[in-house]
Amino acid sequence: MLGNQLLVEMKRAFTIRNLLIWMGIIILLPAIRFYTIKEGYQFFEPIEVFQEMVSTIIPLLFPAIIIIIYLPLFLQELRNNFVLYTRPRIPLNTYLLSKIIVNAFLTGGIVFLLIFLPFIFVVYLEPHLGIIFYSPKDANSVIPMFTFSQLLEYGNLAYGLTFSLWVSINAVIYSSIALLLMLVLTNPFVALSVPFLFYHIFNFVTGILNAPMFSPLSTIFPFNIVQQPLWTILVPFLFLLIIFIGLFVFTMRKQKEWLM
């Protein structure tokens, strides 16, 4: 039953409107950023261009991007009593589990592509196209190192894959928190705004505490601070994970009140 419902949910999610939104996220956002940095910046290596491409716009919009991939569909269902009419056809647990899985799959996949496709383009394709001018390196050249740059010693691809996976895992947890909150909060708009608020308030608080290395922004997209040990990224991540697990347990315990 779950297998069939996963297929149904996937079919339902692949609408022309959603495909356009997803294409916009995957292609338009990095393209705009690439266009703005292709001139006026000094680069020595393609990896720098990639790091510049996935900073600024994408980190700023990250909590908004992750909730527009799939959750608006569920929002429409909740607000218009549609879920009630699925209940004689499929157990509510199964229906919601299919939503959680499809949301995680699509959000994770699209965010992965959002990071990984620019990486492939900049590191492997663009050098053949010659759009970016790379300055020759000399003794005074400084190539900035950020958190995750440690992985470059295993090769560019290892770096690109690991970093893309890291951002997509964070995206999955943030959007899953929003989805679970939609089940337990009476106002789904509040639920959808929680990841945005958490992300930016946590950034603000870590800034005040003079610990930017633990801010969500600087651990998911670590291009605004100097290189940190890799363990630092796990601090806000574990905090987020604890929130997610706590919320999951709370949601399961409130099961009787879902959608009543």
């Binding site: 069939n4 419902q5 149904v8 079919k11 339902r12 569909l73 429409q76 269902e77 218009n80 009593n81 549609f82 879920v83 009630l84 009419y85 699925t86 056809r89 499929i90 229906y95």
Partner: peptide, 22 residues
């Protein structure tokens, strides 16, 4: 309580979405 539907879809599409479940 009240009818349930997905507002941005046609009536047929709404019924189809429910029918797909079974």
């Amino acid at each position: 309580d009240r009818p349930g539907y997905i507002p941005n879809k046609t009536g047929f599409q709404n019924l189809k979405e429910l029918a797909l479940i079974k």
